[in-house]
């Protein structure tokens, strides 16, 4: 564990707490893409298949349970919670995310560290996480103004993988046999997808204006 990875995990945890706060405090999921939440649920379920077989540390296991639990809880809320589901606007959340699932799985079948059930699903989860934010970013562009909590949720979610890139650089230089090129390349793509969001978020913060993404 190094400070970059810990900062990344904490930033990721904060993004989840901000999202839970928004949904439970406002009893509304307006501006949140159900499809992105479903993709993240698939990402965590596919990535943490080793949850009960490989014990790394208490921290590792607890965080995996938090990530799986929170993503499934949000999906459940947006689909079935009496009040919350009313604020979900499926007419705006129209990204065909099943193509992302199919494409990433196909890619994982060809590009992986080792051709085994666990490794293919792990690579699939890494590729899928890189593009999972697309439905959410498209929805924000469509819905124009972005409420503060949703903006902060996306900001922290984008920043966490940026910290992971610093972690991979650090580990590359401090550990001899470290090679996570699948995670690194995907992490770079993932963080790059947030670039324009970061830019507009910074502009809105500088001008102390409401965050607006150009359509």
């Amino acid at each position: 564990m190094n400070i970059f990875r810990f900062a990344g995990d904490m930033t990721h945890l904060i993004s989840i707490l901000v999202l839970l706060l928004k949904v439970y405090a406002t009893k509304s999921c307006s501006g949140i893409s159900l499809k992105t939440q479903e993709l993240y649920g698939i990402v965590f379920l596919a990535r943490y298949l080793d949850l009960f077989t490989d014990f790394i540390s208490v921290y590792n296991t607890v965080m995996k349970l938090v990530f799986i639990g929170s993503s499934l809880a949000i999906v459940w809320c947006m689909r079935f919670h009496r009040v919350v589901k009313r604020s979900y606007d499926r007419d705006v959340d129209t990204f065909r995310h099943y193509f992302l699932v199919g494409g990433c799985f196909l890619l994982a079948l060809f590009v992986h560290e080792k051709f085994s059930f666990r490794e293919v699903f792990w690579a699939f989860s890494i590729y899928l996480e890189a593009v999972a934010i697309l439905p959410q970013l498209i929805l924000l562009q469509r819905s124009g103004n972005v409420d503060n909590l949703t903006g902060q949720y996306v900001l922290f979610l984008g920043a966490y993988r940026g910290f992971y890139i610093l972690n991979w650089i650090y580990r590359y230089f401090t550990e001899d046999q470290f090679s996570r090129w699948i995670s690194c390349v995907s992490g770079l793509v993932q963080t790059a997808l947030y670039a324009d969001f970061f830019y507009y978020y910074f502009i809105s913060w500088k001008n102390n204006a409401k965050l607006k993404l150009p359509a």
């Binding site: 990721h12 080793d50 490989d54 590792n60 995996k64 080792k114 792990w122 972690n167 046999q177």
Partner: peptide, 10 residues
């Protein structure tokens, strides 16, 4: 072929 290192990252 040595097994890839355990996935210690989240």
């Amino acid at each position: 072929h040595q097994a890839p290192p355990a996935k210690d990252e989240l």
